[in-house]
Every structure is written in structure tokens, then in C-alpha cells.
Design a protein around this nucleic acid. Structure first.
Lengths: 196, 196
DNA sequence: GGTTGAACTGAACGGGTGTTCAGATAGCTT
DNA sequence: AAGCTATCTGAACACCCGTTCAGTTCAACC
């Protein structure tokens, strides 16, 4: 047999990435085989190589796309306001963004070690830009006397870890609504840096 | 060939666990082969099965041991004091304990999905007890009017995520000493829950 | 100093891995 | 209606996987 009915690159390509995202998030990059991804898409393993040069590139593209989405989304939302206002927006944005794409977040965090050195460096650089964005807000707040933090780098890492952690326990339809969760995290972040 | 010179179960057993810990933490459970672990110990793959029934049990034992160590260590340190004092001790303890065993922490956090359902439930239960310990402190503090937290469960998860995050960036011999890091994290935790 | 048994080897088992590629087909273009 | 090409199959490649086990060797005991 050969070409399937109604098959199309525009359809299969995204389906390959979606299947890879789901499976990498659930079982981990190393534990997922190309055959498994292909089965999810309803195709033979060889067909995947029409859409990715290899398995590593599939992972890298997912992670890079996620980090670029993250930076672009924050870039669109970050402008204006003083440090406390921007920290509040950052916290809410971070929680919202991460709750919207738990699988991509999970992969971006867990599969760094599955990247080849070159790919790792590229993702680490993108991540560094995001961390620097938060640290910039903290430095600005410290300079303006609005925040009390002995070390802005440490505080930025601590806040990001705290906020990202929401994905480990939050379940849709649970006790708390998204908006409440956003608000509570933003409050904790604000207080953690000593803002009134 | 067969038995090595000076070989002994008392020596090889711990070496197997140490090698597995190191490799699982670095490359991930699924990405590490039994042959790789064996090579690290200086033994053939078959010999590993004198020390573990299978690969899954090797992972489970490492994780269970870590969680039990964690609970026992906190149990020995938790007694006495009011809620703010206990929260301070918890934060410092958590940071210190995690900085002492970054590899075990990494595995306990990352490899939950590599566990069989039964083993997962066992580890999740241990983890739940630890989270409950912190939540207990928070509830006590709220009842005494010392903390302001709208949701103790959320706050407990947020604090643990924040504190555990120290392992992702802290490097020995870096800019900050351990004691400083402990103190800063404890301050952030205290303020995050609205304690004076 | 001979015997025993714990510790380990090395080969094998069936099956899975990422990746390649010649060949087949479905749908678009002309 | 014919031809073309993007899309996909199915088999094969060389290699790695976790696990088992008969056989070998060394250290400790009697």
C-alpha cells in the first residue's frame, strides 16, 4: 500500500508534532519510540521522516517553539507600569500561560537533558531571556525601593519555580478556579519580594 | 572468568545503587541501560540481578529510600515552636536537605512517571505525608492569626516548589554560601504566607 | 587443604530501537 | 484521460534492550 486517502502534509505534520508533544510529556522522550508516535498519527514510522530529520529535531522544535511562544506572549503583555504592577502581571501571565499548555511546559522543563549539547545551549539561552525579564522587574523594584530582595537572581529563580509548580497540582474543574489561582500566586509572589 | 578479586556483596550492592542514582539523575531512567550501570560498577550486566530483582525495583528503592530519609530527617527536626518558627525551620531544612542530595531529589521529582502504578502510589503517599507536614504548619499559623493564606494546600505546594527549585540553579562554590541561600529562602517563604 | 557456596561471567533469548529506501498509490494538474 | 509527484508503506539495516542461566572462580570455613 502507499498513500492514504485524504492524506496531506498540512494535516500530518501538525499531527506528528501534537502526538510527539503528548507522548513526550506523558512518558518522556527516551521512553517514546518513533513507532509509537507514528501509531498515534495512524502512519508507519518511516513516514515521520517526511516531517522531521530525526527524533532529536522533533524534540528540539517542540521546545524551541514553546520557548519562543512564551517570550513572544510575555513581550506582548509586559509593557508599561511600575515594578509592582509588572510583577503582578508577570505572575498572572506565567500561571495562565503554563496552565494553558501543561504538556509543553512539562517537556521544556524535564527534557533539557535529552537535548544534544548544541540544542541544549539554544534552549538554555531562550530560558535565560525569560528569567532575565523577571529579574529586570525585580531589579527595577529594588532600585525604586518597592521590593526587598537581597539577591535578585535568586529571587527570580525562586519565583519562577514557585509559579511553574502550579502545573504539578492544578486540575481543571477542581476546588479552585483559574482566576483565583492566578490571584493567589500573584499575591504570594508580591509578598515574597517584600512588596506592600 | 567469574568472581573478581576482593569482590563482596557488601561493597557491590551500594555501588550499584550509587551508580544507578548518578546515571538516572543525569540521563533519566529510560535512557540508562542495565549494561551502562554495570559498566560503571565494573561488572557484567547479569551481576546486577544479584542486587535487584529488576530495573524498576532499582528505581523504586532509590526513590522510596530518599522519601523515607526525608520524612525521618524532618521528623527529627520538626518538634516544638509556634507556626512561624516551624515554617522557618521547615524552609531551612528543606533547602539544606535538598542541596545535600541533588541527585536523589532530581530523581524523586522527575521519575515518578517511570514508576509502575503500584510503585507510583507508594511514592505519592510518602510525598503526600511530607506536603501534609508543611500544610499542617500553615493551617496552624492561619488559626493562630500568624499567617494570611487563602488556601493552605495551594500555599504548601507553592512553597515546596519554590524551595525545591534551589537545586536547579545552586552550584557549590558559587556567589552565595549555603547558609545565605537557606536564610533568603526562609525569608521569602515567611513573607509569602504573610508572616511579619 | 579440601569443600562449599557466594559472586560473577559470558553468551544467549526474544524483542525493540532509530533510520533508510525502493516501490506503490492517491489526488492534483494539464 | 494521462501523467506527475507528494505521500506513505513495508521491509530491512545494524544495534541495543532487560533478563536468564549454566558454568567458573575465589574466599571463607571445617
Amino acid at each position: 500500500m502507499a498513500r492514504k486517502r485524504g492524506s496531506h502534509a498540512d494535516i500530518t505534520g501538525p499531527r506528528v508534532r501534537a502526538a510527539a508533544l503528548r507522548l513526550f510529556a506523558r512518558d518522556g522522550y527516551a521512553a517514546v519510540s518513533m513507532r509509537r508516535i507514528a501509531a498515534e498519527v495512524g502512519v508507519q514510522a518511516g513516514a515521520l521522516y517526511l516531517y522531521t530529520p530525526d527524533k532529536q529535531a522533533l524534540l528540539f522544535d517542540l521546545m524551541q517553539g514553546h520557548m519562543e511562544d512564551l517570550l513572544a506572549a510575555w513581550g506582548a503583555e509586559s509593557q508599561g507600569g511600575d515594578a509592582p504592577a509588572r510583577l503582578d502581571r508577570f505572575a498572572r501571565f506565567h500561571v495562565r500561560f503554563h496552565l494553558d499548555r501543561p504538556e509543553a511546559v512539562f517537556i521544556a522543563f524535564m527534557e533539557l537533558r535529552s537535548l544534544t549539547p548544541g540544542n541544549f545551549a539554544a534552549i538554555a539561552a531562550l530560558r535565560g531571556r525569560y528569567e532575565a525579564a523577571l529579574e529586570g522587574i525585580l531589579r527595577e523594584g529594588v532600585a525604586a525601593g518597592a521590593f526587598t530582595v537581597p539577591d535578585t537572581r535568586l529571587a527570580a529563580m525562586a519565583l519562577i519555580a514557585m509559579l511553574t509548580g502550579v502545573t504539578t497540582w492544578y486540575r481543571e474543574g477542581g476546588r479552585l478556579a483559574r482566576a483565583e489561582v492566578e490571584g493567589i500566586y500573584a499575591d504570594m509572589a508580591r509578598r515574597a519580594v517584600g512588596a506592600g
